[in-house]
Amino acid sequence: MAGLITASEPSWIAPFTGLSPRCFGRLVTAVRREIAAKAHRGRPWGLPLEDRILLVAAYWRTNLTMRQIAPLFGISKSAADRIINHLGPKIALHPRKRFAKDTLLIVDGTLVPP
């Protein structure tokens, strides 16, 4: 279907993820490595892994609803929800326990001292 967002077109990556295509490729590699360790069961995903990661990043970056983002990728809103719930924890940063003494943290737009 023409006009859908896809990671195979590098021009879609930067506006929807904030990452360069090279950094996005490293993210895909890291997620692929983590997923490969687990056994795959059930029906295969309708979107390739790169497009699923792009969907999660676009969802987080743009604050679109499931109803709005799903048609951009040519899937149903329930499929978009399943993708976000499955890949979100794998993409999210793991919290750090320690920061450098002069580190400035921003949480929800609020400055927080370490």
Rank of each mutant, 00 (worst) to 15 (best):
P21A: 00
V56D: 01
I84W: 04
R52Q: 15
P71S: 00
W60N: 09
R22W: 06
L47P: 07
P44N: 13
A30G: 09
N63S: 13
N63H: 12
L49W: 06
K77S: 11
P15Q: 11
P10C: 03
A80H: 03
R43I: 13
S8E: 11
I5G: 02
A36G: 11
K90T: 11
A100M: 08
F24A: 00
L105H: 06
V28N: 12
P10A: 06
P15W: 08
A7R: 05
R33L: 13
G74R: 02
R96V: 06
T6Y: 01
R33I: 10
L72D: 01
D51P: 04
R32E: 14
P44S: 13
A36N: 15
P113V: 02
I35E: 15
A57H: 02
R61V: 03
L49M: 11
Y59V: 02
V28F: 07
P114A: 08
V31H: 08
R43V: 14
A7V: 05
M66F: 14
S78T: 09
E50I: 02
W45I: 06
R41I: 12
E50F: 02
K90W: 09
R32G: 11
L54Q: 05
L47T: 06
R26N: 09
P113I: 00
A79N: 09
N85E: 12
R96I: 03
P95I: 01
G3D: 09
I13A: 05
L105V: 12
S8P: 00
R43A: 14
K101W: 07
T103N: 05
R98A: 03
L54I: 07
P71C: 00
L54H: 05
A36D: 15
M1N: 12
G42A: 12
A14G: 08
V56F: 02
G3A: 07
T17V: 02
S76P: 01
L55D: 03
D51A: 03
S11M: 08
T17G: 01
K38D: 15
I83T: 06
P89G: 09
L49G: 07
M1C: 08
K77N: 10
L4G: 00
D102M: 10
P44K: 13
A37P: 11
N63W: 05
T29I: 05
A70W: 01
S20Q: 10
G74D: 05
L64T: 09
R43E: 15
L87Y: 07
L93H: 13
S11C: 07
G18H: 02
V112P: 03
W60H: 10
L19S: 04
H86A: 14
L47N: 04
V31I: 14
A79L: 07
